[in-house]
Design a protein around this nucleic acid. Structure first.
Length: 725
DNA sequence: AGGGCGACGCTTTTT
DNA sequence: GCGTCGCCCT
């Protein structure tokens, strides 16, 4: 290990800093992971026992990667550094609570539930409280769960959340408070914990049991927390509670990349760290090793408009490289085709897995996915449905869950849903009977429904089996396969394959509890860091955090999409959207393509409406990007070759690509264009997407109905039409 | 009480 | 294009 050679001065300073609190502000691509890994290795090299180091990261994959890289530095081969306690806050909390569950008054243990289970539980409490009966304005259960979770994470009342951001629900504020209370009570009764409970209960454990707290403060002499900008308030308090007497607390993060405020994360934590831990040394890593200077100039400019922050300016030694491209498709529909063309172009330079398309929300890639299918380009989507969230996986895991916790209502509901003649009502009665130990009621029901008796018998055989998850899952899958075939007649073979994989995963676990906890806390297909060979990557910006590609394209950079329209009203939400765009752009090493469609297709109205480029782009100097118009190939080309629906004054010089924007200008807003069709006459016209059509009627608001051969009649804004003879 | 069918409304991000 | 809800029949 040659620290001086492998690290730049700031990194070296962070790696070799003496004991005491340390805050490392690590700009995007500044070698943050490298710095943590070297510090970890150096500690061990200097005789620190790995077992006395606690490494808290955002995902378990991240911690495993760091530990194996540290082990490599120390010459341990490919193994991960043994003994270090590493993982997410939630996984660490779970393990600790499990060890001390007696002290917390959970004598029988507990089950961790995910969002879907929480939704289900909240739905049932809503029914039992007889709220929202026939009231369509009452929020859906998943929305309720979101509100409750948000209140919990921000540590305020549900009513406060409603007053602040869901004003249309004020009428239901009292009912929602009752629902939140009912949800909390139900979790206690059924020995359930949601994600938030894990953190708050760990805090309670450490606050109320001085002996336990002291045990951990002595056991861990070094704490390292990665992605500190994404911690919420309780997580920051946990760090303070666990802070060793040695004062060796390292927080690493980048306030500019804080993108989880919606679930309670607060930049305040990273800004306040030096106050909470007096004597903190602050080190900034500003040299970027990832992106070219032209890309960094754009990302620095995006950050210019941000509010309170640690000031830093990234610089790169990679001065070479093209400017980011601003690509202007006619609409979000044609954007997909244009993106495919760009992907083709990029794939001549880089393998597909070095190319990524990013977007604000999962649904924004749908039309691109269709085009990629047509073009036969393989892709892998991050941030979609997780393996453990697929219905058939949850169905199968419900059986062992009932065995592990006979009070788990979500698991019971799933198991019972496969028994004919048993619906929600009967299920509730049965669960009550189980909870109260009313054997007579259970026997009576089993007598009435033979298939129910079969289910009970099956669960008994599971209980009698030795607690090895592998064989148990094998039995469960065999039992469940007929139900699977019935539920998914079309694609059960695919799902069965998935279940076989699940069984493989289960075989690797020693206990059922560990398997079930991992499935909700860290789903195994989190393998996003292990890119599929030669697959294009599609990802939400959130899921792209910490990753990088040679070529990155970002879709739908228009107002209402990015920034999301939900973020437009509150200043702090808008700031988060800005940081989100910053994260997206800083994923790119060599090529950055920004897609700004000129219009969005509205399926209800059947029209394309003009949109503004994202306000974050509008405020940038246009000279930072190269401007590219959609090529007209494949689309109807008006005589001049310059489409009249795209006024040339709003763009750089016309032409296919590579044309520079007017120097010093701004990326212009898309202003409503003047009507191009004489409103008084009917006849033939041309549309950029649908081609030639016949105007069959004039309508209100500057629209008209046009019949396009092959597409049928459409209502179109007149300004998007060009007259034709 | 369960289950099937049709209408509606709605779409952000996730440990 | 999806889940959720309510209605109606068994």
């Amino acid at each position: 290990m040659d620290f001086e050679k492998d690290l730049n001065p700031a990194q070296l300073q962070a790696v070799t800093a003496a004991g005491g609190p340390l805050l490392v502000i690590a700009g995007a691509g500044s070698g943050k992971t490298r710095t943590i890994v070297y510090r970890l290795a150096r500690l061990v090299q200097h005789g620190v026992d790995p077992a006395s180091i606690l490494l808290l990261t955002f995902t378990r994959k991240a911690s495993q990667e760091m530990l194996s890289r540290a082990a490599m530095l120390l010459g341990h081969g490919g193994d991960i550094l043994p003994g270090v306690c590493g993982g997410t806050f939630h996984a660490f909390a779970y393990a600790t609570l499990r060890r001390h569950h007696q002290a917390l008054g959970f004598p029988q243990g507990f089950t961790v539930i995910d969002r879907a289970d929480a939704d289900e539980l909240i739905g049932r409490i809503k029914d039992s409280l007889e709220l929202a009966k026939g009231d369509k304005s009452f929020p859906k259960k998943s929305h309720v769960a979101e509100l409750i979770g948000k209140a919990r994470n921000k540590e305020c009342r549900v009513a406060d959340i409603i007053a602040r951001e869901s004003f249309h629900l004020v009428a239901h504020a009292d009912d929602l408070e009752r629902l939140a209370d009912g949800y909390a009570a139900a979790k206690t009764i059924h020995h359930l914990m949601d994600y938030d409970d894990l953190l708050f209960l760990l805090e309670r454990l450490l606050v109320e049991h001085e002996d336990i707290r002291e045990f951990y403060r002595q056991r861990f002499t070094h704490i390292m927390v990665d992605e500190y900008q994404d911690t919420n308030r309780v997580q920051a308090r946990l760090v303070a509670l666990l802070a060793p007497h040695t004062g060796n607390v390292l927080a690493v993060g980048d306030d500019a990349q804080s993108i989880y405020a919606f679930r309670g994360a607060t930049v305040d934590n990273i800004l306040a760290f030096p106050r909470i831990f007096p004597g903190t040394a602050v080190i900034k890593l500003e040299q970027n090793y990832r992106s070219t200077q032209p890309i960094l100039e754009l990302t620095n400019a995006i950050l210019q408009g941000a509010g309170e922050k640690y000031d830093k300016t990234l610089f790169s030694t990679r001065t070479d490289g093209p400017k980011p491209e601003l690509l202007r498709p006619f609409s979000d529909i044609t954007q997909a085709k244009m993106a495919v063309a760009k992907i083709r172009e990029m794939s001549r330079k880089w393998p597909l897995h070095e190319i990524a398309v990013l977007f604000r929300a999962g649904y924004q890639s749908y039309s691109l996915e269709v085009e990629l299918g047509k073009a036969n380009i393989p892709f892998q989507k991050y941030g979609g449905i997780k393996f453990s969230e697929a219905a058939h996986v949850k169905d199968v895991l419900a059986y062992p869950r009932v065995v592990a916790n006979p009070l788990d209502p979500a698991a019971w509901t799933r198991c019972l849903s496969f028994v004919p003649k048993i619906g929600p009502k009967t299920a509730v009665k049965l669960m009550e009977a189980v909870r109260l130990g009313d054997q007579a009621a259970i026997d009576k029901a089993a007598k009435k429904h033979p298939q129910l008796a079969e289910l009970f018998a099956f669960l008994d055989t599971l209980r009698a089996m030795p607690p090895h998850p592998g064989p148990i899952l094998e039995r469960v899958i065999a039992h469940h396969t007929p139900h699977l075939m019935e539920k998914y007649p079309d694609d059960y073979p695919r799902r069965l394959t998935g279940l076989e994989q699940l069984q493989q995963i289960a075989s690797g676990y020693a206990s059922l509890e560990a398997l079930l906890a991992d499935m909700t806390l860290e789903s195994p297909d989190e393998d996003k860091r292990k890119a599929k060979e030669d697959h294009l990557v599609l990802s939400t910006v959130h899921s792209s955090k910490g990753l990088e590609w040679s070529a990155v394209m970002i879709l739908d950079l228009v107002d209402e999409r990015f920034p999301s329209r939900h973020a437009l009203t509150r200043h702090e939400d808008l700031e988060e959207e800005r940081r989100l765009l910053y994260v997206a752009c800083t994923r790119a090493r060599d090529y950055l393509g920004l897609f700004v469609p000129e219009t969005l297709y509205n399926r209800q109205a059947g029209v394309c409406s003009p949109v503004q480029p994202s306000l974050f782009l509008r405020e940038l100097p246009a000279s930072l990007c190269t401007h590219v118009r959609e090529s007209l190939s494949g689309c109807p080309v008006p005589r001049s070759g310059v489409p009249a629906y795209a006024p040339s004054s709003l763009h750089g010089p016309s032409g296919s690509s590579g044309a520079a924007a007017p120097p010093g200008g701004r990326i212009p807003a898309c202003e409503p264009a003047a009507p191009r069709v004489d409103p008084s006459q009917l006849g033939y016209c041309r549309h950029k997407i649908f081609g030639r059509g016949k105007i069959i009627a004039r309508l209100e608001d500057g629209k008209c109905r046009v019949n396009f051969p092959g597409f049928g009649p459409k209502v179109i804004l007149t300004e998007y039409l060009e007259m034709e003879g």
